[in-house]
Design a protein around this nucleic acid. Structure first.
Lengths: 193, 193
DNA sequence: ACCTGAACACCGTTCAAGT
DNA sequence: ACCTGAACACCGTTCAAGT
């Protein structure tokens, strides 16, 4: 039914290259065109503009986390959410520089709707579902920001001015861990019960 | 002690103009220079680069939320956090386009340390404090993203494919409200008790 | 120290023209 | 429809030269 290959590259290949460039630190139309062997102008046959490429990547990343984890009948509801949240964290933190775009397009893409619907199946109160999404996306966004900036920046910390912060500095430096992520999610879920 | 005015504009005036331009949708060094009556190159006497301007703005916005709300002895701990969180939300959502920068520089600026220390005074467990920050900043980031994109985009929603989403569409459209923000924060805090 | 003018090395996007 | 080549209207940053 589909016509033969008229384009020299597949749209998915363009998105692959675009994600690579984001991971490398800078996505530009010119670099993207060069990577797929095209002229910059030719990209506008594939996507209307740069923003469309970014939101397409956001939706594709969202699709990489296994949504069926939320429907696993072998697990209790809270654990299903935990499993999916951890999977999503893994997928998104593999591409920290792409995370801001995901936050930006969080509820626009088709995949976001599917995630929301699946979450509602296990946590039927929409307010509770939204609270979970806020926690999960917020934690991932903060971790991602930390990774792109280059982790914690030398930390000039005066113990006299910041006694409590200094006293728990070991915990604070461990903020960005799956353990802290999971601990907080557990507290959030318990507060929603 | 300080010398007389050698510069034609104050650094704070540069930041004011920069925030204006962010609010208007695009901060460029050239537009910023024009607004304060300088040549683009002259800006590099004030700030080393564009990124420094953005993080300075982030820290200044963070400073606008009244931190003393966290130490108000007339209020119980949870309500102090609620009051501060609502104040911060108000300050940041007044400049939604600047919010991503705040997320990015969340823990680097001097003001962020002060916020953290104050939070630890009312919620002494660093893990709990971080969980609250994740919720608060996550909620603000999602609301801000929604505002810059231009609120909810026409919403093509098939009730057959997304029955639960459709059934609570009224709640979902009210996601971005101080009420939802406060409700979720209450649940988070109760989970942390 | 502060500022200008001019340059350097880039951007995203458009569009006539070719196939 | 897809693609090239070239242009348009921008960027951030640097730097000699002036005050």
């Amino acid at each position: 039914m589909t016509r033969g290959p008229r384009r020299s590259v597949q749209p998915d290949a363009v998105l692959d290259a675009a994600l690579e460039l984001i991971d490398e630190g800078a996505l530009t139309m010119r670099a993207l065109a060069a990577r797929v062997g095209l002229t910059p102008g030719a990209l506008y046959t594939y996507f209307p503009d740069r923003a469309a490429i970014v939101t397409a990547i956001a939706d594709r990343l969202l699709a990489e986390a296994d949504l069926s984890l939320l429907d696993d009948p072998a697990e209790p509801p809270h654990r299903r959410i935990e499993n999916y949240a951890l999977a999503l964290r893994e997928v998104l933190l593999a591409h920290p520089a792409a995370v801001p775009a995901i936050l930006g397009a969080a509820f626009n893409g088709p995949m976001a709707l599917r995630v929301g619907e699946s979450l509602l199946r296990v946590l039927p109160d929409a307010r509770a579902t939204y609270t979970v999404m806020v926690y999960v996306l917020g934690a991932i966004a903060l971790e991602a920001a930390d990774r792109v900036t280059g982790s914690t920046p030398s930390f000039e910390l005066d113990p006299a001015e910041f006694p409590l912060t200094s006293g728990q500095i070991d915990v604070i430096l461990a903020y960005n861990s799956a353990e802290q992520f999971q601990w907080g999610l557990g507290r959030v879920l318990s507060g929603l019960s």
